[in-house]
């Protein structure tokens, strides 16, 4: 099962190493990581997408992350109302004959062309990972030369539905 875990951490040397080392040590499989500054100086935010076998493993991940001294807060937000976004740059083969077709194709995705050369285009797309995935699949027949994806970054929406089944990792 796929879990989206967000956390805030002290922006100290080695903190990313600490977290990824923990994932390696305990055999957790990371799909993506994003890291960046938050609104508070000295505090960074990380978003992980991990693949785990069961809920128990997901719970263990949260608990092990919580044990790290530099980790301030950990949340598994998978089952909450969230905003999850990813950015991808896709370099696709685009001889003049198919350019117009590609322009039309990407339009519903609200993607944009950020670089044009003689025989290729670079398309930038932002959105939920599934949307990014869908666009890449659509463009594949034209010949994808390169893809760069940022990985998912996410947080919870301002308002949570009352019925949201928020999983309490652990009752202390």
């Amino acid at each position: 099962m796929r879990r989206i875990i967000t956390m805030t951490v002290n922006n100290r040397p080695g903190v990313l190493n600490r977290i990824t080392g923990l994932f390696t040590k305990r055999h957790y499989n990371i799909e993506s990581i994003t890291v960046g500054h938050t609104e508070i100086e000295g505090i960074s935010r990380m978003t992980f997408v991990v693949n785990v076998d069961d809920e128990r493993t997901a719970e263990q991940i949260i608990k092990q992350l919580n044990k790290q001294i530099d980790v301030l807060k950990v949340n598994d937000i998978t089952d909450q109302a969230i905003v999850a976004r990813e950015l991808a740059l896709i370099k696709v083969a685009a001889p003049p004959a198919v350019r117009q077709e590609i322009y039309t194709l990407i339009e519903p995705f609200r993607a944009s062309i950020v670089d044009v050369s003689k025989d290729s285009l670079v398309i930038q797309v932002t959105g939920e990972p599934e949307k990014v995935e869908a666009l890449i699949e659509l463009l594949r027949p034209y010949g994808i030369k390169e893809v760069a994806r940022t990985g998912t970054t996410a947080f919870t929406r301002g308002a949570q539905k009352a019925t949201t089944n928020q999983k309490t990792a652990f009752i202390i």
Binding site: R56, E59, Q60, K63, Q64, N66, K67, F170, I171, I172
Partner: peptide
Amino acid sequence: IDPAEIGKNVPTKIPIV
């Protein structure tokens, strides 16, 4: 005292940190 030990290996009905 370590919440990560509870439920790690054995499913636990009454967890007390």
